[in-house]
Simulated scan of single mutants.
Amino acid sequence: MFELFSYGDAGWGDEILQGLAITVQLAIATLPVGLCIGFLAAFASMSRARPLRFLGFGYTTIMRGLPEILTLFVVYNGAGLLINAALRWWAPEASPIDFSPFAAGVVALGMVFGAFAAEVLRGAFQSLDRGQVEAGRAIGMTGRQIFLRIQLPQVWRFALPGLGNLWINMLKDTALVSVIALDDLMRMTKVAVGVTKQPFTFYLLACLIYWAMCVLSELVLAQMERRANRGIRRA
């Protein structure tokens, strides 16, 4: 059995590791995209302008109600058509652009992550004491200084547990990109199963790898939470 996981033509060890690398790269690339979308949607939903509030709440409501795999299909098939249609209108002589599965995975998972993160961040912002903001204005701090020095550190502390859960869910959702032919861990596992006819062995290995990544993430998140809550007295 161990020969199945060796390197080279005789085993699948190198293919599995390559798929793992793609999975980790996809998750790391999606995180900042999702956080940016989450902050923008949270700010929009808390805006005093009614159109922005409608846009923010509408985005989070729609995206949280759609299955992740459906969002992935729509982005992968629709975004490429939209980009090429705009390119043909702008430069008819230009050659079509191939929208890669990796980019589609980052965009789709980032949109889903951002919708859920927006609600976490909105709740964190609403948990802040408004008196601190008024105190910052009273001593002459600008809006940017208030956000960076007063609001953001506390929002980070309040939102970190929820964002950590979203990260773990997103890490597992990366397995969905295998359906659009991205050679991630799940797709390489399926290929190995199809060739070797050993489904239990390779699917069990994939389960252990995903579990190990989630456990490692939980350990890192626990350390981040301890650091974010340093100096906070527990009741």
Rank of each mutant, 00 (worst) to 15 (best):
M46Q: 14
L40V: 14
I22S: 04
A27L: 09
A117D: 07
A94F: 03
S100R: 11
A124L: 10
Q132I: 01
L31E: 09
L81F: 14
L219I: 13
A91N: 15
G56R: 03
F200N: 00
D173K: 05
Q151E: 09
L52K: 00
L87K: 11
A235H: 12
E119H: 15
G80K: 02
A44N: 06
A103Q: 09
A135L: 03
V179Q: 12
P32E: 05
L166C: 02
G164R: 13
N165C: 14
A27W: 13
V215P: 00
I97H: 12
G105C: 01
I168S: 07
M186Q: 10
Q154F: 04
A21D: 04
L205A: 12
M188Y: 07
R187Q: 08
Q154T: 03
N169D: 12
S178A: 09
A222D: 10
K190Y: 08
M141W: 09
L152K: 07
L176H: 06
L31G: 01
G56D: 05
P67E: 13
P161R: 15
G56L: 00
Q151A: 03
L109F: 06
T196C: 00
A192H: 04
G38E: 01
D183T: 15
I37M: 02
P199W: 11
L55R: 08
Q151N: 04
V193M: 09
K197T: 11
N84S: 10
